[in-house]
Simulated scan of single mutants.
Amino acid sequence: MQQLLDDAPDAVRSRIGTLSTASDSGSETRVARWLRRRHFQVEQQVFVDGVGLLDAYVGGLFLEIDGREFHDGEDAFSRDRRRDLRAIRHGLQVLRLSYAQVWHDWERTQQDILRAIDEVGAFGRRKVEQLALR
């Protein structure tokens, strides 16, 4: 993939920006790139003890970006709810986004993400700091 970017014209490369291999899906890539363009620090594939890997951490919120391919079956649905419960027990704020929100209702989803960071981000950052001190 990097070779394709290197071979692209300057105008294309500047619009694409840097590439990351941390995303597990195009939806994760879209969300992370959008947040970074707004100057947020985004950490991807963050491991939380007792919860596992979460797709991203930004501004006090953990993001789980779920496409149907890996989260549609009953086992996956149940596993995701167990992970959410463990995260909440730690006091962590998890915002779960669907494929449809990222690709079909993106404008509204962008505003909701920004509001969530603004409204609960400070609480989430304090909880993350406390968890790191344990």
Rank of each mutant, 00 (worst) to 15 (best):
H39T: 03
V48D: 01
G26K: 11
R37Y: 07
R38M: 14
D84M: 06
H90W: 15
G67V: 04
Q44C: 08
S78D: 13
T21C: 04
S27R: 02
E119Q: 14
P9H: 12
P9C: 06
W103P: 02
E74R: 13
R126W: 07
A76L: 03
P9Y: 08
G26I: 08
R115W: 12
E28L: 06
E107G: 04
W106H: 10
Q3E: 13
D75P: 02
D55M: 00
I65V: 14
V128P: 00
E74P: 15
L114M: 14
L53M: 08
R38I: 02
G52C: 06
G121P: 00
D24H: 10
A8T: 05
L4K: 13
I113C: 05
D6G: 09
F123L: 13
G91N: 06
Y57G: 00
D75R: 11
A122H: 11
G17C: 11
I88F: 10
D7L: 14
G60P: 05
R15V: 06
Q111K: 15
E28T: 03
E107Y: 03
V94R: 00
Q44T: 09
V120F: 09
D72F: 07
W34C: 05
E64I: 02
L85E: 15
G124L: 01
V94P: 00
G73K: 10
H90V: 04
R33Y: 02
D49H: 10
Q111C: 04
E64C: 04
Q45F: 10
L61D: 01
I65L: 03
G50Q: 05
D75Q: 11
A22S: 12
A11R: 08
R68L: 10
E64M: 12
E107T: 10
H39P: 01
T18K: 13
A122Y: 03
V12L: 15
R13F: 07
D112L: 13
D24N: 14
F62N: 00
Q3R: 14
D118N: 13
R68V: 04
A100V: 04
L133N: 13
D10P: 15
D80P: 08
R89L: 14
G60L: 05
A8W: 05
R79F: 06
S14V: 09
H39C: 08
S98T: 15
R134S: 11
S23R: 08
R36S: 09
R96Q: 09
T109C: 12
Y99N: 10
Q130F: 08
M1A: 11
